[in-house]
């Protein structure tokens, strides 16, 4: 896949966005000298359109929109191998996470499945105060149109006492709802 790009002077909007993401991740992309050690050690790199090094490269070139639309920021497993081994001390994993949150915030959801999974998970937490695994899988399957995915595992799980169809709430579940709301209000910084 070859894109030719015309490099223009950085737009203020892009610079600010990159700064915001850097600040949230607590790292600096200027440190990166593109050695590739992060991609080399990334267990998910084989499936990425822009593996970690390239995401940082896009940001270094101020092509932040292209980076936000990448699929790789969604399948980053946050395993932190890249950050642990980076010779320049760049926290790439934190950066990928920050980029994913920004993409979600902007509605640039390149990976509908991962976004749906996260949404379903947090939905359970918000409603009951604890993760509701059966509900998570049902909501995920529904919203991604994979109605029968993992259906074969349902019964075996139940037989082993490993899944409950009924959610368990905590006493303070209202507190949890409030935490969700307040976090959203304070801008999620």
């Amino acid at each position: 896949m070859v894109n030719a790009v015309t490099l223009i002077p950085a737009r203020e909007h892009d610079r600010q966005l990159i700064s915001k993401v850097e600040k949230e991740a607590g790292t600096s992309i200027n440190l990166c000298y593109q050695c590739g050690k992060c991609t080399a050690g990334c267990p998910a790199a084989f499936a990425m359109d822009y593996p970690p090094r390239q995401i940082i490269r896009l940001l270094q070139l101020n092509l932040v929109d292209q980076a936000l639309e990448a699929g790789s920021i969604w399948i980053c497993a946050s395993c932190d191998t890249c950050s642990t081994r980076c010779p320049r001390g760049v926290d790439i994993a934190a950066l990928m996470d920050a980029m994913r949150r920004e993409a979600l915030y902007q509605g640039k959801i390149t990976d509908k499945k991962v976004a749906a999974f996260n949404k379903a998970f947090l939905n359970g937490v918000r409603n009951f105060g604890k993760a509701y695994e059966a509900g998570l899988l049902m909501q995920y399957n529904l919203t991604t149109g994979q109605l029968l995915k993992d259906a074969g595992l349902g019964l075996p799980m139940m037989k082993r006492g490993k899944v409950s169809m009924i959610p368990h709430s905590i006493k303070g579940k209202d507190e949890i709802k409030k935490i969700f709301d307040r976090a959203k209000q304070l801008g999620g910084e």
């Binding site: 949150r101 996260n118 947090l122 937490v125 105060g129 304070l186 999620g188």
Partner: peptide, 25 residues
């Protein structure tokens, strides 16, 4: 006492402050 979910990976994939607040409780 009445512990709540830490938010796990979905938390920090979605909202930085929320992902810290949930375990902080």
């Amino acid at each position: 006492e009445d512990w709540s979910c830490c938010g796990a990976t979905s938390g920090h994939n979605t909202d930085h402050l929320l992902s810290l607040a949930l375990p902080a409780r």
